[in-house]
Design a binder for these strands. Sequence first.
DNA 1: CAGCATCCGGAGCGATACTG
DNA 2: CAGTATCGCTCCGGATGCTG
Lengths: 124, 124
Amino acid sequence: MSEYEHTCMIRGDGGRAIRTILDRICNKWTLLIVATLDQGSLRFTDLHQQTPGISQRMLTLTLRNLERDGLVSRTVHAEVPPRVEYALTSTGKSLIAPALALAGWAIEHVSDIEASREAYQTRH
Amino acid sequence: MSEYEHTCMIRGDGGRAIRTILDRICNKWTLLIVATLDQGSLRFTDLHQQTPGISQRMLTLTLRNLERDGLVSRTVHAEVPPRVEYALTSTGKSLIAPALALAGWAIEHVSDIEASREAYQTRH
DNA sequence: CAGCATCCGGAGCGATACTG
DNA sequence: CAGTATCGCTCCGGATGCTG
């Protein structure tokens, strides 16, 4: 089987499956949060501190979406002050591998891409 | 080396490298166009017909961005009527592999994610 | 054939202030 | 500590119409 026949996985149903996950991970913070939680369970404030630049609002929204999709578990401990632990589910952990594949590609080609952008800039 | 230490590839520079590529592929059409071009060189109209639902405007914008980033080449043939061929560059082709990894994950887990969404819905 | 110009609605995201 | 509420900006993307 030739290489391009595999790409039916992407085009498959008009891209519905790949869209579902892209809509989840392609926002500004999701992959960063998932990668951070790969260390293990963390509290809201820990995540906030380990994610430079994120607002409380966006951290909350990102975690809610991940919880809703079953990629992150949210555990509330009945204590005062409250303690909430976030952790990757098994589904969430399984996302790490393909995410790393993409990150590897990004690191390998980011300089080429940026060079191409500058060259394009000067041509137009 | 434990698994989670690899995730520095994602968190690395605060996520700049991964952001560069996510900003490119995470829009609605880019991955679909790249997967379609994996068949080989195609004209504007061919791409338009093989990508159900896309508008001329979005096809143009998507192709311009891919060309700008050096993932797609654009060849204008001096004929009447005009003929323009789009093809993946070697950099563009190298994106197929990690994209397939992500698509595979998406296909494998899309039903779990949708089930989790419905369960979350009924809980809230 | 292969596009560009224009208008417009909605979503993403940041800043800020408030709370059980 | 772990959020919620509100405001406002920007950009994506769809619809439509025009052109070398």
